[in-house]
Design a protein around this nucleic acid. Sequence first.
DNA 1: GCATAACTGGACGAATACGTCCACTTTAGC
DNA 2: GCTAAAGTGGACGTATTCGTCCAGTTATGC
Lengths: 229, 229
Amino acid sequence: MVDGAKQLRLYRPVVHHNGVEESQSAPAAQLTARGAATRSRIVATAADLIRVRGVGGTTLDDVVSASKVSKSQLYRHFDDKPALVRAVIELVGERVIAREREHLGSVKTFADLQRWRDALVERNALQEGRYGCSLGSLANEFADQDSVARQKLHDLFAAWQELFDDLLRRFQREGVIPEDADVYQLATGFVAAVQGGYLLAQTSRDVTPMASAIDMAIAHLRLLGRATD
Amino acid sequence: MVDGAKQLRLYRPVVHHNGVEESQSAPAAQLTARGAATRSRIVATAADLIRVRGVGGTTLDDVVSASKVSKSQLYRHFDDKPALVRAVIELVGERVIAREREHLGSVKTFADLQRWRDALVERNALQEGRYGCSLGSLANEFADQDSVARQKLHDLFAAWQELFDDLLRRFQREGVIPEDADVYQLATGFVAAVQGGYLLAQTSRDVTPMASAIDMAIAHLRLLGRATD
DNA sequence: GCATAACTGGACGAATACGTCCACTTTAGC
DNA sequence: GCTAAAGTGGACGTATTCGTCCAGTTATGC
């Protein structure tokens, strides 16, 4: 019945002055270093604004003035607003995954896991829970409005979940949790606990519920480990 | 630095023809049955639209035409858009809490809990995960933009969590889980698992991750129970 | 049956946002 | 040093949306 096509544009071929017809949100052939730098500056600025105000609350004029770029440049790099938002999703996604890989990739003990938890909670405490998870917020706002964006977000959550997958398998190899533990369920549960925790912290303006949600997931792992003894 | 005050209006006193000055989103003295019916029709329609399109994607003209009410009536019942959204939050919140109370209030065994889980997952499967949790989506979109709305949402999540609180205490009394279990942590963890599960289902267009997230929470309870034996 | 609440229906103004366009300037690559 | 990419800066058209207003109609309570 109702769909979100209102703000999305249909495919519209773009003919540049060089006569080459292009598709998608392609910004001409290839960029020089300078062009690439400007592009990333735009995306980074947009990401900041969107984190705070949301996609709907961020106008392109906001992005233009905040990134100190002229409007013509913004539209040379991005076809339209959805294209920019998708680029933002990619940037934010890379950042989050890189950060989590950094922390989760080397976790081998419960003490390590605890440090990961502390870092995550601490970072969120700095903003008193505001804005939630940068990925989660985007997912909530865009998943049902832009199928391309939804796919990207899905892949990102899958990547995050895979970090937990790897971690849990290490735990299995080390005998921290039993071999027959349902790794998929546990990894999913961890991602969900983190996301749900972010949301509760956001409405509470307090990180306590986020900490509790993650702690329950960790406690579950501990119990699983003990059950083997 | 940046706040979301852009779409919110400041307090603006309203003087009605009866000379009574009012505040908030008050729709005149009191409503007759007819007036109340129209008001609820507006809110219910708005809730439907917002669930599908989000707050930002729903215009007041959409609400007007979908609810078959004239614009002057909409503005007689609500001061402005945020006021309408707050009413939507209240309606949706009541619905969700009533539904959850219905299901959770009588849970006394793991089999009961499983039935609750199945119902929740099944309902979400009907829409293939789309739109997520009606409360969670609103929370994500409005928590940082409207402090009144955030407070309402906070209270609603707290009410939901209390249902788990009660449930867990019943479990304790029945000896299903130990007396010294951290009920607050568990209740929070359940709400977070549900919300995180909704989000993952939304980006996946598949309820499986939501089911897994909740299953992990239930599995944790089961393990807690076994630990006492 | 009268006063008042409830409502119609749409015109209207103001603001905002998206996206286009263009003449001109600056910067880099070879 | 020439050429093409990169960028400025803002005017502009179009569309949308919020919120106001009002003259006239219909229902309702007592």
